[in-house]
Computed example of a mutant assay.
Amino acid sequence: MPLTKDYISGSRRTSADDEPGVRPTRKYQKAPVWRFVARRIVTAPIVLFGVILLVFLIVDLSPNDPARASLGLFASEEARERFAAANGLDDPVWVRFWRFIVNLLHLDLGSSVVRPEPVAHLIGAAFPVTLQLMLLATVIAVFLSLLLGVLAAQTDGRLVDRTIGGLAALFQAAPPFWVGLMFIQLFAVALGVLPSGGYFPIGDGVRYWFSSIIGPATVLALPFTAAMTRIVRASVADELAKDYVRTAKGAGIPWSTIMVRNVLRNSLISPVTVLGLYIGGLMSGAIVVESVFNLPGMGTLLVSGADQGDLGVVRGVAIVSAFVFVLVNLVVDLFYILLNPRAAEAGAE
């Protein structure tokens, strides 16, 4: 079987596939990529609508009473009835949901029953903090997981590989709040190089902002890094064992070229498929990390809303988080097409 350039790059394709009159043997050549893209774009709003409906029903049918949260525990029954009538709480569920959807289309998430502010304003102040935290944590996790995963794969079975695997298992299993407390104890109390908590906006100075966000971002990134390191290590090790790597080495191609152009490109397909899920999972981890480091982000807003019975805030945070999760997964799917368009064509059928 004659070798082609595609064989060296990892796709074992013979020159017979290029002969005229020979029908392609792979199914992915039958379906265009645009079907895959269109399916993802159409599915995303449907999934988001389902999540909005589920969140609305869970919050709306919960035993918490918004009237008590707004008026206090000792408010009279007449005052609670007036509050319910004024806010439409006595309307049927489908009427309340329709009103909520109409308001949501106008970017109106309602008002807080505890604080005299619209929910959208509260989320608008908290979301940038969480977004900065998640972006920095993602950068840290992706960089470290690629570095450690490739290093572990190239030292398969040796001390370095076993050490990286053990640390990855440890940090993946460690509770984030415990890791956060240990981080504060080491870097804030013992060494005094980072603050123990609080947040400085980037407008107050990049140095102060970075010192207040790097600790929480590192703690948030550690479980993500541990999980992705194991996935990258397994994927790279599997790719290094394939025949085209040995063929390329025998042909005298530089090792750096083989790793960057072939091995990494082929082996990153598996990590990218789960990247969106892990990035979405950072939202839940941010709740714990923001509480430990006292950051005024979405997690802190959600916890305070739940403690105070402020169901509008809880619902708004949940819906915005769901929107971010769906959007991130859509972007990851589109990025996956760039890495592996043939698999996308196969999935479009």
Rank of each mutant, 00 (worst) to 15 (best):
K5Q: 11
V22P: 01
P24V: 10
V33G: 05
F36P: 05
F49H: 02
I52N: 04
F56I: 05
L57A: 15
P63L: 13
R68M: 15
G72L: 07
E77P: 00
E77F: 03
E78P: 00
E78S: 13
F83A: 02
A86R: 09
N87E: 05
N87F: 01
G88Q: 04
L89D: 09
P92I: 04
P92E: 10
P92C: 10
V93H: 02
W94F: 09
R96S: 07
W98N: 09
W98V: 09
V102Q: 13
L104I: 02
G110L: 06
R115T: 05
E117K: 05
G124P: 02
L135Q: 03
A137R: 12
T138L: 15
I140G: 05
I140K: 08
S145L: 08
L146N: 14
G149C: 06
G157N: 02
L159T: 12
L159A: 14
V160K: 10
G165W: 03
A169K: 04
A169N: 11
L170Y: 07
L170I: 12
F171W: 11
A174M: 12
G180V: 02
F183G: 08
F187Y: 14
V193H: 08
L194N: 08
V206N: 00
S212F: 01
I213Q: 05
I214M: 12
L220I: 10
T225P: 01
R230G: 07
A234S: 15
A237W: 00
G250M: 14
G250K: 02
G252Y: 08
S256A: 12
T257I: 10
I258L: 10
R261S: 12
V263C: 08
L264T: 06
L264S: 07
R265L: 13
R265Y: 06
I269R: 10
P271N: 10
V272I: 15
V274R: 11
L275H: 12
G280K: 12
G281S: 09
G285Y: 09
G285N: 08
V289I: 13
E290D: 07
V303E: 06
A306V: 15
Q308D: 06
Q308K: 14
V313K: 01
F323A: 15
V328G: 11
